[in-house]
Design a protein around this nucleic acid. Structure first.
Length: 655
DNA sequence: GACTCGAGTCCCGCC
DNA sequence: GACTCGAGTC
């Protein structure tokens, strides 16, 4: 094994708590995977090892590396998953204890908005004071701080927060009534099960003898406590992290967790990795200069092992020119420097930035993979089909019911829906349970009653089919029987668009087929849970296999833990990086943006290019921009008067 | 009840 | 720019 002494130490500390404080590019993942291999070599059963990561991408990456290291031999593999999928598995086994069905649905952002909207409407004047987005923001903040609905009122100060607290209670009740959890609930409910039910905790802790957590600096409160509960008995806990790369503060991550590790596990061994194998001396010099501007950090001395060319900064007219420059540069590297598409990454701050790059890459015929962003599952037609499936899996799922009750139009209009909804609220039951007695609901026309009954009969029929047929068959029949294809032709006049949208509907069918193939006991609920957890990678399945060799186009958040020979960091402007929302709230937010920039810069192995556009289109309007303050910090120009100017939103001046 | 049109809003990041 | 929502019309 070609490991340096510190790495070797970390790899071979096989039992007891271990903290690996590792800077960027020091071989963290290598240590984790080698350690797993070493455990197996020491006769630890692979399926007794659990490795937890934050993103699916990171889990895949680790799985691949481990497979390469272990060979194809072991039939049983160590379990590698994200926190969220780990929670889903635990919840499937025990969530009945909390009064939820084991086939619970996972609500994504769109579903959450649906619940938030109806909850606010129920409260008098609620929808005037708070918008669904504002409410979800408040709820998100409370949930990441593990504040329960009944505690929120005491913490509320403003009118909006008081209303929010009341709405939070209703929101939570609505979710529970629908047998659904949002992403935060996955963590919170798992935490509750593990801390309130000793039997559950013991059963889950007993499943593994070794627990490894990557990117430990990004654990939030719930994740922290879940880790504590699972490792408390065997104490074979290995965590790996870097405080300079903590970029999930906005969802409750606390660097304190990694700093506190030695207190939590007094017998813990601490290993520091400080030799950077990834980047050139030149790239490292830039990143070290940058991160030194953060005051609250563990000072590390990262040493480089090779040198190369100096990073570059390029300034372009607008985001179109920026994309043209990057793609032309990259095409030239492929043509004349024998680079392959997969050697490149284009990293950006927000999900809207990739658009112009996608266009250019397509024009230049260079394969690329887009990670994240407007997900496949955010498209209207996909959401419609999935809403049908969710309703079949769980008729109490009111968000889905309301979404498709009249899609395609079947004569159940707004008035009818509102009447039904009022009656359901009055009766204190989910709307679905009211439908068999729709004749008794006052105020409905005879045609409306008929339409509702036809709808209910149809759904019931599919639910019966579900018991006899495979999910795949049911999905196919369903799409045909509701004439969804006709709906698309009706809705969209262009033949191209009709086809594209129909193609994505077929993609869902393929996804169900793929899932049925993989799963041991395929169910509709299982498929939907998987979809919720891997929403962004749906197309990846198909594409990454076809085009493994592709330029990676992704956000900085998605890039964490990855590395590329050549990196383009684009949109290096005030307002984009640092993002204007972070600049607006004072204090530590900009530090997190700086860490984000640091993460980006340290992804590059050999060649780094930073670009900025002098004007950028946003919401249809083009606006002038200013260079990011981080450019001055990276290049050691903090004494440049323009550095002060851009920080205050002023135009830099030529000298 | 379905359809059309214009106004208003949205978006930071991940699972 | 793209999407959603409500008002107004058929």
């Amino acid at each position: 094994m070609d490991l340096n002494p510190a790495q070797y130490d970390a790899v071979n500390t096989l039992s007891g708590p271990l903290l690996v404080l590792a800077g960027a590019g020091t071989g963290k993942t290598r240590v984790v995977t080698y350690r797993i291999a070493e455990l197996i070599r020491n006769r630890i059963r692979p399926d007794r090892i659990l490795a937890v990561t934050f993103t699916n991408k990171a889990a895949d990456e680790m799985q691949q590396r481990a497979a390469a290291l272990l060979g194809k031999r072991p039939k049983v593999r160590p379990e590698m998953s994200t926190f969220h999928s780990l929670c889903v598995r635990i919840l499937r086994r025990h969530i009945q204890q909390l009064g939820y069905p084991s086939a619970f649905a996972i609500y994504d952002r769109g579903d959450q908005e649906g619940v938030a909207r109806s909850v606010l409407r129920e409260i008098k004047g609620g929808d005037a004071l708070l918008r669904p987005g504002d409410l979800l923001y408040l709820i998100g903040r409370w949930k990441t701080a593990a504040v329960r609905p009944e505690q929120a009122a005491a913490l509320a100060e403003t009118d909006k927060e008081h209303l929010g607290a009341a709405a939070y209670r209703r929101y939570q009740n609505a979710l529970k009534a629908a047998g659904s959890l949002d992403f935060d609930d996955l963590l919170l409910c798992t935490e509750e099960l593990l801390t309130q039910f000793p039997k559950v905790r013991r059963a889950e802790a007993d499943r593994f003898d070794h627990l490894l957590v990557d990117e430990y600096q990004d654990t939030n409160g719930s994740q922290y406590r879940i880790v504590q509960s699972l490792a408390a008995d065997h104490r074979n806990l290995c965590v790996v992290g870097d405080d300079d790369q903590s970029i999930y503060g906005w969802r409750g991550a606390e660097v304190a967790h990694i700093l506190r590790f030695k207190n939590d596990w007094p017998e813990a061994k601490v290993v520091r990795l400080e030799v950077n194998y990834r980047s050139t001396r030149e790239i490292l010099a830039w990143s070290n200069r940058l991160i030194a501007f953060n005051k609250l950090r563990h000072v590390k001395t990262l040493r480089a092992t090779c040198s190369g060319e100096s990073p570059r900064v390029r300034q372009l007219k607008d985001e179109i020119e920026e994309a043209k420059f990057v793609v032309a540069d990259l095409a030239d590297r492929i043509a004349r420097h024998r680079r392959r598409p997969k050697d490149f990454a284009i990293l950006c701050r927000t999900n809207e930035q990739p658009r112009s790059f996608e266009m250019e890459l397509r024009r230049a015929n260079i394969p690329y993979v887009l990670m994240g962003g407007m997900s496949f599952y955010d498209r209207k037609e996909i959401r419609d089909v999935l809403a049908y499936l969710k309703l079949l899996a769980n008729p109490a799922d009111e968000v889905s019911l309301l979404r498709i009750i009249n899609v395609p139009a079947r004569g159940i209009g707004q008035t009818t829906v509102k009447t039904l909804l009022d009656a359901a609220i009055h009766a204190g039951k989910p709307m679905w349970e009211l439908l068999p007695k729709v004749r008794e609901v006052p105020g409905l026309t005879a045609t409306a009653v008929q339409a509702v009954e036809r709808f209910r009969t149809m759904i019931e029929r599919f639910r019966r089919q579900m018991k006899e047929q495979s999910p795949l068959q049911v999905v196919k029949t369903l799409i045909r029987d509701v004439s969804y294809k006709d709906e698309l032709t009706r809705l969209y006049s262009e033949a191209d668009e009709q086809e594209a949208r129909w193609a994505s509907v077929e993609e869902v069918v393929n996804a169900v087929a793929g899932y049925s193939h993989r799963a041991t006991d395929p169910t509709l609920a299982g498929f939907l849970q998987e979809v919720a957890l891997t929403a962004n990678e749906a197309e990846d399945d198909k594409e990454s296999k076809l085009e493994r060799n592709a330029v990676a186009l992704m956000t900085l958040h998605a890039a964490k833990g990855l590395e590329f020979p050549e990196v383009y960091m684009v949109g290096m402007e005030e307002g984009t990086l640092p993002h204007h929302r972070s600049v607006a709230d004072a204090g530590a937010s900009v530090d997190e943006e700086r860490r984000l920039c640091y993460v980006g810069v340290t992804r590059a192995q050999r060649r780094l290019t930073l670009t900025l556009a002098l004007e950028r289109r946003k919401w249809g309007k083009s606006r002038p921009t200013h260079p990011s303050r981080f450019l001055y910090e990276l290049t050691g120009q903090a004494d440049n008067p323009n550095y002060q100017r851009v920080q205050h939103g002023q135009k830099p001046q030529r000298r």
